[in-house]
Simulated scan of single mutants.
Amino acid sequence: MTIELHIAITAREGMQERIEPWFDEVFAPALRRQAGFQSAALMAAYSDAVQEAIGASPAETPTLVVIRFDTEQQRAAWVESDDHTHAWGAVEEIAHHRAHYGWTVLSASESASD
C-alpha cells in the first residue's frame, strides 16, 4: 500500500530562493536512488489573497514537500540512509522543518492517458 509523507518547511530569512534548487539538485536525486520510491513534489502555497478568494484557510507554511513510497518500511530505510543524511542536512541550512505528517493512500485517481 502506498504511503505519503508531507513535510512542511519554512525558509530561513533570505533563503527562500534556495529551496527549489535544493529540491531539484539534492533531495529529488537522492530520493530516486531509494528502493520503493514513487514520486516527490515541492509545492508552494497560494498567496493569502488567493486562499481567501477560493474560500480556503491560509496555509500554515509556505512550502510543502510530498514524497511517496511503496511502504513505510522503505521510507524509514531512506531516513536511515547516507543519502537522507546528506539531503536533509542540506535543507536544514536553508529552512526550518515545521512538521511532517504520514499518510496511507487509501484510494487514488489519475487522469486517463491519451
Results as ranks from 00 to 15, higher is better:
Val105Ala: 00
Ala53Ile: 05
Asp48Glu: 13
Ala112Asn: 02
Arg18Gln: 12
Ser113Tyr: 03
Ala49Met: 09
Arg18Val: 00
Ser39Tyr: 07
Glu17Gln: 14
Thr63Ser: 11
Trp88Asn: 01
Phe23His: 03
Thr85Asp: 14
Glu13His: 08
Ala40Gln: 00
His86Met: 14
Glu92His: 07
His6Val: 10
Ile19Val: 12
Pro29Gly: 02
Ala28Met: 10
Ala11Leu: 07
Gly55Ala: 11
Trp22His: 04
Pro62Gln: 01
Asp82Val: 10
Ser107Arg: 12
Asp48His: 09
Asp82Gln: 11
Val66Met: 05
Gln73Lys: 15
Arg32Phe: 05
Gly36Ala: 12
Gly89Leu: 03
Val26Gln: 05
Arg33Glu: 14
Met15Gly: 10
Thr104Val: 11
Gln16Ala: 15
Ser57Asn: 07
Tyr101Trp: 07
Phe27Asp: 04
Gly36His: 03
Thr2Gly: 04
Met15Asp: 13
Ser39Pro: 00
Asp48Arg: 15
Asp70Pro: 01
Trp78Arg: 02
Met15Ala: 13
His6Gln: 14
Glu25Pro: 01
Pro29Ala: 04
Ala76Met: 12
Leu31Val: 04
Ser111Gly: 10
Glu17Trp: 08
Pro21Ser: 06
Ser39Asn: 02
Gln51Thr: 00
Ala87Val: 02
Ala49Asn: 12
Ala76Phe: 03
Glu17Pro: 06
Val65Pro: 06
Trp103Gln: 13
Ala56Leu: 12
Glu4Pro: 09
Asp82Gly: 08
Phe37Trp: 04
Leu64Ile: 01
Leu64Asn: 05
Thr61Asp: 09
Pro58Phe: 02
Ala53Asp: 13
Phe69Arg: 01
Met43Phe: 05
Ile9Ser: 02
Ala112Thr: 09
Ile54Ala: 09
